[in-house]
Simulated scan of single mutants.
Amino acid sequence: MASGTEIRIGLAAYPCAQRAAVLGLQDLLQAAGGLEKAARGLRVEIAEDFAGDEQFDAVILPPCLGARPEGEALAEVSAWVARQHEGGALVCSICAGAFPLAESGLLDGRQATTHWALAPAFAQAYPQVQLQAERLLIDDGDVITAGGLMAWTDLGLRLVARFLGLAVMLETARFFLIDPGGREQSYYNLFSPDLSHGDAPVLKAQHWLQAHYPEPVTVPRMAAAAGLEERTFLRRFQAAAGHKPSEYLQQLRVAKARERLELSTASIESIAVEAGYLDVSAFRKLFQRIVGLSPSEYRKRFAPARG
């Protein structure tokens, strides 16, 4: 454990762990601990022995590329995480690192995040976790989960602030040219409809929606496009597409609006109408809820600079 002047952080080099994240975190945290304003040092070690009893003050499960750890490897890493937590360590995960963390049972009944593309598999494997995949980072005190592959920068800064203070965190962010401001995965999570589910009538409705989304769309019209009775359509659409029809339509319309905000100079009012919303105020509220930014904030952040 840490002495009065040193904090030990273990970076778990489990199978498939992304080396870029492991080494990047090591560089960031060690640099922060070496700043003049830092009252204590950070000793960052790469942990590879998951059967040992070495105890850290914080442990980090990095993202992984390719297949996630399974079987004995998953059991070994999750058991190590549980022992570290029981010994008083702050436990953190990034992206797919949430899987061995959830396997340990430490996320049961808690809010947590992972990469948005992994959210369906995570939710199926660990239904007892309150998954919020739109969040980039969730700090739950003794457990911190971060979302995307590059969210290790956000987690690193959070740990620097936790252990060394806000002033050192801001100085570290300036040194590494990292934006310390709040971000969320929903800014980057573009709606990608599932068209490979194999339910032909539902696929017909999805194709119909791609052409008719700006119109006054109703469930009866969607069911007719699918050739199904309305109650059957509602059940099968959600099972196949992963959304209720109304939610799917909202996601599709907002995705189209995002494209227009990025690629055109049209007014937000006209983009709302093009997407199927006559009530511009309602469109703004829906866009904010789904994306996490207002339409004007989204355009400012993501539209290319125009000369």
Rank of each mutant, 00 (worst) to 15 (best):
W116C: 06
A117S: 15
A117P: 04
L118I: 06
A119W: 07
A119P: 02
A119I: 04
A121R: 15
F122A: 09
A123E: 05
A123P: 08
A125R: 15
Y126I: 06
P127D: 04
P127Q: 10
A133K: 02
E134W: 10
E134M: 13
E134I: 00
R135G: 07
L136D: 11
L137S: 01
I138K: 05
D139H: 01
D140L: 05
D140W: 09
G141A: 09
G141P: 00
V143G: 00
V143T: 02
I144M: 00
T145H: 08
A146N: 13
G147K: 00
M150E: 11
W152R: 06
W152S: 08
W152P: 08
T153D: 14
G156I: 10
G156A: 08
L157C: 03
V160C: 07
V160A: 05
R162P: 00
G165M: 07
G165D: 05
L166F: 12
V168F: 13
M169G: 07
E171C: 07
T172R: 04
A173E: 09
A173I: 03
R174M: 12
P180H: 15
G181A: 13
G181R: 15
G182L: 14
G182Q: 12
R183Q: 13
E184Q: 08
Q185W: 08
Q185T: 03
Y188K: 08
Y188T: 10
L190W: 12
D194E: 15
L195I: 09
H197P: 14
H197D: 05
G198M: 11
A200D: 14
P201A: 00
P201V: 02
P201H: 08
V202D: 01
V202W: 01
L203M: 04
L203I: 07
Q206I: 00
H207M: 02
Q210D: 14
A211I: 03
Y213K: 13
